[in-house]
């Protein structure tokens, strides 16, 4: 899916600064001020988005370290449990520094395979095609649910809630 936060923010900003702001009535001070604030907040989010995950992980590490240091002096079962969970999360995050990069490489490799088996007549090619089409169906349903509010669906009621689809997937993985 291509509607990413950074792309959406950068194009919204261009639209605001190049089309909408110049067209605003200069005598409407409230609209002028609020649109400048919208641009300011969007700029802040847009500039910081690339570092958002690292920032969150750094903050998590910071509080985890503080909890470890506090432990000899002022501890609780909840703090100990949360510290352990935080350590687990940080270990996982360090093991997977860039989920997006790995995801894209995996998509590329599978796309190459899809191209190679697209018209093969042997059993392996046929099986691979069936698997790829079946997997598409599941992923596409999640994407359609993610984008449901855009209004492209002819029968929106047939699309399950995103949270339900994500929960089903997690249930499948854990069984």
């Amino acid at each position: 899916m291509e509607i990413t936060l950074d792309l959406a923010l950068s194009t919204i900003l261009r639209s605001m600064t190049e089309v909408i702001l110049p067209a605003l009535d200069s005598s409407n001070k409230l609209a002028q001020e609020q649109s400048q604030l919208v641009v300011g907040l969007l700029t802040l989010l847009s500039n910081r988005e690339p570092d958002r995950l690292t920032y969150t992980l750094t903050e998590l590490e910071h509080y985890k370290d503080l909890a470890v240091k506090l432990n000899p002096f002022w501890s609780s079962d909840i703090l100990k449990s949360l510290t352990a969970t935080a350590e687990e999360l940080l270990d996982k995050a360090k093991g997977n520094p860039d989920t997006e990069v790995i995801l894209n490489k995996l998509r590329r490799e599978i796309a190459d395979i899809a191209g190679q088996v697209s018209d093969g007549t042997d059993k392996a090619a046929r099986e691979a095609r069936t698997l790829i089409l079946s997997a598409c169906s599941e992923q596409q349903l999640r994407e359609r649910s993610w984008l449901l509010m855009q209004g492209w669906e002819t029968d929106p009621s047939s699309i399950p809630e995103l949270s339900e689809l994500l929960r089903l997937r997690q249930d499948d993985l854990s069984t």
């Binding site: 291509e2 509607i3 959406a8 950068s10 069936t130 089409l133 169906s137 984008l147």
Partner: peptide, 28 residues
Amino acid sequence: HQDVLLVWLSGLASVLLDDLRQLMSKVV
């Protein structure tokens, strides 16, 4: 001049990809 519209329009691909999958499943 309307990049924001292009990003919005990219969401249509979710429905189109489903169409393509259904059409392909009849021939492969």
